[in-house]
Amino acid sequence: MRTFFTISSFFALALAITACGPTPPTEDMVRERIVGSYCDGFTYRLELTDSTYRNRKMIRAVLSNSLIPESCNGTYQLVYENSQWVIQFAKDDRPNNSFFNDCEMDMVIWNKEEGFIGGEEDQITIKDLFDGKTLVKGTCD
């Protein structure tokens, strides 16, 4: 009888562990994954360092065919809340040529259901802070 209790306890514990989902990555693991440059070609670029961001968008000038940049710069922090990792981009109080966008945004980067949001290790994506355009890490050559 004692063996049955031990075996059933083991299976109950194993079931409880697997039901909880994957172990969340550490902040350093998340930071290591997201740091870098993200682009869509020439129009959008987002650069993340260990604690700062720079988002740039090239737009056509109103009265000419030339391109002018809009940009936001600031800091971001990683926050673990509600079983997910969130990047919190701080507002840029003085965005360059950007009258309506200050780049302040929260973006989920990891959750228990999907793991890392934004693709596989070899093709990580993130959303642009101006228009939500999908940007790909490392395609900024």
Rank of each mutant, 00 (worst) to 15 (best):
D40W: 01
T26S: 12
V86P: 04
V79A: 02
W110S: 04
T75I: 07
Y76N: 05
K91Q: 08
I68S: 11
G115M: 09
D128C: 06
D102S: 05
E32Y: 09
A61F: 07
D106V: 05
A12K: 02
C140I: 01
E104Y: 12
E113P: 08
K112T: 09
T43A: 10
R56Q: 14
P25V: 01
G115F: 02
R31A: 13
F100N: 12
E113F: 06
R94A: 15
T134C: 01
M58N: 10
P25A: 00
D102T: 13
I87L: 13
V136N: 07
M107A: 09
C72F: 00
C39M: 01
K137Y: 06
P25D: 00
A12D: 02
Q84N: 08
R54S: 13
T23H: 06
I17Q: 08
M107N: 08
W110R: 03
M29D: 15
G119W: 01
K57H: 03
A12E: 01
D141I: 13
L48W: 00
S8F: 08
R94P: 07
V62R: 12
D28L: 10
A12G: 09
G118A: 02
S64M: 04
F100P: 03
F5K: 00
L78F: 05
V79D: 15
V79F: 07
K137V: 05
V30Y: 03
G132I: 00
K137I: 01
E32Q: 14
S37T: 12
F5W: 04
I59T: 13
T49E: 05
M105E: 15
N111K: 03
F4T: 14
K91G: 06
E120F: 12
S71C: 08
G115T: 05
K57T: 02
E121V: 14
D93T: 12
L78K: 07
T6V: 12
S8G: 04
E81W: 06
C20I: 14
Q77I: 15
D128F: 03
L46I: 04
P22H: 02
V79H: 04
G41R: 10
K91E: 08
T139K: 08
E114P: 05
P22N: 13
I87N: 05
I109W: 07
P24M: 00
Y44F: 12
